[in-house]
Computed example of a mutant assay.
Amino acid sequence: MDFLQLHNKNIVVMGVANRRSVAWAVAKVLLDVGAKPIYVFKDQALLEKNRALIGAAAPVVICDVEKDADLAALPAAVSAIAPEVHGLVHSIAFANYSEGLKPFHETIKKDFLQAVDISCFSLVEVANRLKALFSPDAAIVTMSISTTRMASENYGYMGPIKAALDSTVAFLAKSLSQEVSPHIRVNAVGAGLLKTSASAGIPGYIDAYLYAEKVIPRHQALDTSEVANTVAFLLSQRSSGINAQTITVDAGMSINYFDRDVVRRVTAARPQ
C-alpha cells in the first residue's frame, strides 16, 4: 500500500553533504517510496564528492544560496528536470566561527549575518524562486532543532538563528498560501541531537549527545532515520492538516531533563 502517496512526486532536496546527512536520510526514504529526488548541491566539488552516493543518473542542480546568479538560475535548472515540483526539503545550515567559539554576547556580526543568510533566509529565497514550479499542494519542510529556548553554550548563535527559522516557517506558510496556492504547506522538523558529521564539528557536542542518551526515556539516542521519516510524512498529503508548525522529534527528551537517575548521579558527584 502506498500510504504516503509520494510515488513519482518530484522533491527538491537541499543539503546532502555525505551519507550521514539528514538530507541523505530523507532522500533514501523518498527513493524507497518511489519519489523522485532532485538534488541541489552548493558546488561541483560537493557534487563530485557525493556522486557515487546518489548515483550516476540522479538529477542534480548546482546552487550556492549565497550567490544571486545561482539563485536566479535555479528555476530554469529545476524545470529542465521536472516541470512541476511537489516538495522541497531545505536541510542546509552553516556557522562560521571565524574567531573561534565565543560567549554569545561576543558574537561576530559578519558570522551571524552569514549564518542567517544560509541557514534561514535561503528558505525564503529558494521558495520564492521556485514558486512558479510548485504544484498547488506542494509541501516545504526545513530542518530546525528541538528547542530554541535551551541556551546551550556550544551551539552559540545558531540557537537564535533556528528560532528565526521557526518564525519564518509560519510567515512563509501564510504568504505562499495567499499569493501562490492556498494548499501549499510549510513546516519544520525540530530534531533532537543527532550523530551527523556537521554536528560532530560543534565543540562539546559529543558530551551533549551522550547526555541526551541518558535523558531520553528509552535511553537510546535519536536516529537520523526517525527524523527522515517525519520529513517524508510532512511532504506527503497524509499530513495535509499540518501547516506552519515545527514538529519536535526528540524521542521524548524534552519531558525528561530531570530524570531521577541522572539527577542522582550529578548530586552524588558534587563536592561535599
Rank of each mutant, 00 (worst) to 15 (best):
A232M: 07
G190C: 08
N187L: 08
L193Q: 06
M253Q: 14
T248M: 04
S175Q: 14
A188G: 02
T224K: 06
S240Q: 15
G241S: 13
S225W: 09
R238F: 10
H183G: 04
A228D: 08
N229V: 12
N243C: 15
T246S: 08
L235D: 01
A232D: 04
L194V: 06
S254C: 03
V180T: 13
D250V: 00
S254H: 10
A208R: 12
L222W: 01
E226G: 08
I242A: 11
G192N: 07
P203G: 04
L235R: 03
L210Y: 07
R218P: 02
S197W: 11
I184Y: 03
L176E: 00
T224G: 06
S240E: 15
A212D: 08
I242D: 10
S199E: 15
G204I: 10
I255G: 09
N243Q: 12
E179G: 11
K174P: 05
H219V: 01
E226R: 12
N243V: 12
I255L: 15
A173V: 04
P203Y: 01
R185Q: 04
I247G: 07
T224Y: 02
Y209N: 04
Y205Q: 11
S254F: 09
L235W: 00
E213V: 07
S254M: 11
A244P: 03
I206H: 11
T196P: 00
G190I: 01
D207M: 13
H183N: 12
E226W: 07
D223H: 11
I242R: 07
L172N: 02
A228Q: 04
Y257A: 14
T246P: 03
G201P: 05
T248Y: 04
T230F: 01
D250T: 05
G201Y: 13
S240P: 00
G190A: 04
A208T: 06
N243K: 11
L234D: 01
L234R: 02
V189E: 00
L234F: 03
I242V: 15
K195D: 12
T230D: 04
I247Y: 05
A191C: 10
A188S: 07
I216A: 01
D223W: 10
V249I: 07
F233A: 03
V231C: 07
A244N: 09
R218G: 09
Q220S: 13
E179V: 13
S225H: 14
G190Y: 00
N229R: 14
G204N: 08
A228P: 02
V215R: 05
Q245G: 04
K195Q: 13
E226F: 08
A212C: 09
G192A: 05
I242N: 14
A173D: 11
V231I: 09
S225D: 13
S181H: 09
H183L: 14
L176K: 02
V189F: 03
A173E: 06
A198I: 01
V180I: 14
V180D: 02
R238V: 06
Y209A: 08
G241N: 12
R218S: 15
K214V: 13
S236I: 07
Q178S: 11
A200S: 15
G241W: 13
V227Q: 02
T196Y: 10
L194P: 00
V189Y: 00
I255W: 08
I247A: 07
R238A: 15
S175F: 06
G201V: 09
V231T: 10
D250N: 13
I202P: 00
T224S: 13
N187M: 05
I216L: 05
N187V: 04
D250S: 07
L194Q: 04
V189C: 06
G241T: 13
R218A: 11
S181E: 10
Y209V: 03
